[in-house]
């Protein structure tokens, strides 16, 4: 698929912009729908449900961790890779953080720093296997997906939950700072950093070149292995940060933290217009994708119908999975049609 050039009628920035604008309209429509369908006035005459400011902050608060993972995955998917282990690594880091603080007796800043480093090491493990042994990212991260989660379970014996974190730590996850949920500031900082990395530096350029053509990037003298190692290691560090925020939000660190988050993160990235085949995509798209999923997830919980079914979580998962399938299909169908119209094209290896 990659060797065949796609002589596109429009150049890619405009097309990309179009995809993101489209997503923005969808997001707005979605938001308005939930605003009107999910907001009610209770018996005391107070506004409850989706339309309240509290609820909006809640959405922001709940989307930080998945948002961080999606940010970590964006450069990876740009290089035509994938990382299935981020959710498990989040769980492992949460446990490690709890253990360092609770059992290790370290101060919170020190424990946090160490956790970030350990997350980086976890990511570096992926990176080493992928770049040094040239193994497919899919199977490597499937292995570490199991390994990281398994280590978390082994450390806690499946039972221990670390709690009783001090208030100044919970402030990160449960309070507001300068009017916004505290973790949102962290999230926005990382978002800004990743945006700059991907769109404003030579690193991002390399990621895209590698995604389009790893051999072409090598022949251009780009350090392909180093760049790949960077994105996977970075993903580990960001997953660790997400673990700390998760712990602070819930006030507890458990082994099952972040289970299934990888799906939401991948969905957000693909929904945001980043091609699963690498090369094209943007962080802005990812952020919109995250917002669309977060609004969906929380909005459903506010709908009276769903509330009666008491199944907002499942509904959100179902819709997210379906959304991912539609986004994927939508990204290839036009190409397939175009290819089918011009000529019965030879199929690429699946």
């Amino acid at each position: 698929m990659r060797t065949e050039p796609q002589p596109s009628p429009r150049d890619w920035p405009t097309r990309l912009l179009r995809h993101e604008m489209l997503l923005l309209y969808v997001l707005l429509a979605e938001w308005l729908f939930f605003y009107f369908a999910g907001t009610t006035v209770n018996r005391k005459g107070v506004l409850v449900g989706f339309g309240t400011l509290d609820r909006q902050f809640d959405i922001l608060r709940h989307s930080c961790e998945i948002g961080l993972l999606a940010l970590a995955l964006t450069p990876i998917i740009l290089t035509a890779g994938i990382d299935l282990s981020v959710g498990s690594l989040l769980g492992l880091c949460a446990i490690l953080f709890g253990k360092l603080w609770h059992d290790g007796g370290l101060s919170l800043p020190l424990a946090t720093t160490l956790t970030l480093i350990l997350g980086g090491i976890g990511g570096a493990l992926n990176a080493t296997l992928i770049t040094a042994l040239r193994l497919p990212p899919l199977i490597v991260t499937l292995g570490t997906y199991s390994l990281f989660r398994g280590l978390a379970e082994a450390i806690t014996r499946g039972a221990i939950t670390y709690t009783d974190f001090p208030g100044e730590f919970l402030f990160i996850g449960q309070e507001r700072w300068l009017g916004l949920p505290t973790q949102a500031w962290l999230f926005f900082t990382v978002a800004l950093a990743v945006t700059l990395l991907v769109h404003r530096t030579t690193f991002g350029r390399s990621f895209r070149a590698i995604g389009f053509s790893p051999e072409g990037a090598r022949y251009a003298g780009l350090p392909v292995a180093r760049r790949l190692a960077l994105v996977y290691t970075l993903a580990g560090i960001i997953a660790a940060l997400a673990a700390i925020i998760y712990t602070a939000r819930l006030g507890q660190a458990k082994a099952d933290a972040g289970t299934g988050y990888e799906l939401f993160a991948i969905t957000a990235v693909v929904l945001g217009g980043t091609s699963i085949f690498g090369g094209t995509g943007s962080v802005y798209g990812t952020l919109l994708g995250v917002a669309a999923i977060a609004v969906l997830k929380n909005g459903l919980a506010c709908l009276p119908v769903v509330m009666r079914m008491n199944a907002a979580e499942e509904m959100a998962g179902l819709l997210t999975g379906a959304l991912l399938l539609f986004a994927l299909a939508g990204s290839v169908l036009p190409k397939l049609w175009a290819a089918g119209r011009s000529r019965r094209s030879p199929p690429s290896s699946p």
């Binding site: 698929m1 994938i82 299935l84 899919l138 299934g260 990888e262 799906l263 991948i266 969905t267 693909v270 699963i276 085949f277 979580e313 499942e314 509904m315 959100a316 998962g317 179902l318 997210t320 999975g321 379906a322 991912l324 399938l325 994927l328 299909a329 290839v332 169908l333 397939l336 199929p347 690429s348 699946p350």
Partner: peptide, 20 residues
């Protein structure tokens, strides 16, 4: 049929089916 990567497709169907 659509030549999508199997890992992402089945990740999506996994969650869709389970949550459904």
């Amino acid at each position: 049929g659509l030549r999508l990567p199997s890992i992402v497709v089945t990740l999506a169907t996994m969650v869709t089916l389970r949550q459904g």
